Simulated scan of single mutants.
Amino acid sequence: MTDRQQATTTLWRPTGPRELELVRELDWRAWPPRLPEQPIFYPVLNEDYAVRIARDWNVPRDGAGFVTRFEVESDFLRRCPVQQAGGRTILELWVPAEELEEFNAHIVGRIQVVHEFR
């Protein structure tokens, strides 16, 4: 019997130091639950957009911004709506906070930090 590798989709998430610490506490395998004022978890579909948010929004607000990259099972992502948040390449997935635990169960491998801004 052979294991068939699950097709995955690469996603990025711009984040500040507080959220990144929570991801570290979860062994780089899951995103923390949303706060009450955060009804949507929104990873983004392109690295450039994630860099702009981390650099231009997280740094002024939090003193540091990070871009993370992670893989999610492609079949699972079909149920998450893609939202255009501006230009053609400014695309986000909208995952309702109450579905984040299930989303986390479909992450393949670990969440990695690929950029850091201060």
Rank of each mutant, 00 (worst) to 15 (best):
T2V: 09
D3L: 09
D3R: 09
Q5M: 11
A7K: 11
T8C: 08
T8E: 03
T8L: 01
T9Q: 14
W12C: 01
R13T: 05
T15Q: 05
P17K: 09
E19D: 06
L20Q: 03
L22M: 09
L22T: 03
V23L: 03
V23N: 00
R24K: 12
R24T: 05
E25P: 01
E25H: 12
E25N: 13
L26S: 09
D27T: 07
D27F: 05
P32Y: 05
P32N: 11
P32W: 07
P33H: 09
L35G: 06
P36C: 00
E37P: 03
E37M: 12
E37L: 10
Q38I: 00
Q38H: 10
I40R: 12
V44M: 03
N46C: 08
D48Q: 14
V51I: 15
V51H: 04
R52Q: 14
R52M: 12
D56N: 15
W57N: 11
N58K: 09
P60D: 08
R61G: 00
G63D: 06
G65A: 08
G65S: 07
V67P: 00
T68Y: 02
T68L: 14
R69M: 11
R69G: 01
F70H: 11
E71S: 11
V72W: 06
E73Y: 02
D75N: 11
F76G: 02
C80V: 10
P81I: 13
Q83T: 08
Q84K: 09
A85N: 03
G87V: 08
G87C: 06
T89Q: 12
I90S: 05
E92D: 10
E92A: 05
P96V: 11
A97E: 08
E98V: 05
E101M: 13
E102M: 02
I107G: 04
I111Y: 04
V113P: 01
V113Q: 04
V113I: 11
H115V: 04
H115L: 03
E116A: 15
E116D: 02
E116T: 14
